[in-house]
Nucleic acid binder design. Structure first.
Lengths: 229, 229
DNA sequence: CTTCGATTAAAACGAACGTTTGAATGTTAG
DNA sequence: CTAACATTCAAACGTTCGTTTTAATCGAAG
């Protein structure tokens, strides 16, 4: 009991140092490209520390995602519920829902010191990660928030066929993931000012405008989706 | 001279078998996750064959991309030039430019037998690849087509600020890359019929509608982008 | 001070990696 | 047939990987 308490502090210090180092190195070199030796030396820990504290490299990867993704998704859901309460009965507008979803990601982009930026870029990469366990972990961690937002969009866009909504959410998610994951070196389209790239406010405006328009795009069959509110 | 000619057939057989196997395995397990032993055994070749024919694993990776990307970008540019010729002087509409760009990617999605589908998904992953040499290779291979399309969009949307266009092209590219790379397991938003996922025609309609709307989205400052034609 | 549990440290483990080597093989020109 | 060539093959190279082991270190409780 007490023995566990006194052990918590130093344990957590090393644990978080490892998590921070892993976050950055996984982002820079990928999971397989990051060796335990490089990782532990960057964290200022012994080579065996990862296996002692986390059990294995795979368990460390999972811990890296859980540390940030759990609170992030909780925040996303809270933001949505706040929004729904504010609109008292009626459904929030698609734009507001989109902005609520974006906000948690964009807040982390601005957090360069705390490592949030590293994580958000790492996360963007994880969606296209070859390793099946990692992808299913991400999917599983995301699922609750995803369900809530899907339901919110369905209520906001009752005229949009469900299947079309699925696809458009897929597209929206891809745009966000790619935008976040893209690094300075993958500038296929040159010309974005580097200082703007991490400006959360600017990014939110640009992304929200693009995504809202895409989500509300007219259907090919002639009928258009009426803009709510 | 003649010695080179007679050697070409068997050489190319093994080479293409290796390229095909690499394409599929790189997509499934990533570059670092694919060992030469697994790769060569799948290709029905000796372990040393890769180093004999390509020089190294990295050179093989480059060859995998070049084999498909060079003709694909040439096709993209040809499609655009055809479009510009058809519209005789005036700029093609954004929708047509978008569709021209999509077509080359979507044509490969339909090509499951020839391995095109494997490659297109591999390509989607490569944009967020941690390895710097790979990213810069992709960027370099894409650059010529990218410049042409950027110029085409600039002519089609003279009222859209250049910087905004850069961002929106970035978004569009992300949507496409993510959509192509997403595998069956990364179905964060469930509900897409599996048989629709590889239907090039359907995908083109859905993507074109979404991307065109996003590209033409009204600017926040009040002024909107007029739809051309 | 002693004891005990948690943590750190150094060293070694076997396995798998990309690559290289040198001989065997098959194919074609002279 | 023989010589010359590109290709294939089995084997081994040295390195690095993730993990395990065993001993040292530390900090509070008794």
């Amino acid at each position: 009991m007490t023995a566990r308490l006194r052990a918590l502090k130093p344990q957590h210090e090393t644990r978080t140092r490892i998590l921070d180092a892993a976050e950055e190195l996984f982002m820079q070199h990928g999971f397989e490209g990051t060796s335990m030796r490089l990782l532990t030396s960057k964290a200022g820990a012994n080579l065996a520390a990862v296996n002692y504290h986390f059990g294995s490299k795979d368990a460390l990867i999972e811990a890296v995602f859980r540390r940030r993704l759990d609170p992030m998704n909780a925040e996303r859901i809270a933001e949505l519920e706040r929004l729904e309460k504010a609109s008292a009965g009626g459904a929030p507008t698609p734009e507001r829902i989109i902005r609520a979803f974006l906000r948690a990601s964009l807040a982390m982009i601005g957090d360069a010191r705390g490592g949030g930026r590293n994580f958000i870029r790492l996360l963007g990469r994880a969606y296209t990660e070859p390793s099946k366990p990692i992808r299913s972990l991400i999917g599983q961690l995301y699922a609750p928030a995803m369900e809530r937002y899907k339901a919110a969009f369905e209520r906001a866009l009752p005229e949009l066929p469900r299947e079309e909504l699925n696809w458009r959410m897929h597209f929206m998610f891809g745009t966000l993931a790619y935008t976040l994951a893209a690094t300075d070196t993958v500038q296929l389209i040159a010309g974005c000012k580097p200082e703007d790239r991490y400006d959360a406010k600017l990014l939110e405006e640009r992304l929200a405008a693009f995504l809202e328009a895409g989500l509300l795009a007219p259907l090919r069959c002639g009928s258009t989706v009426k803009k709510a509110a």
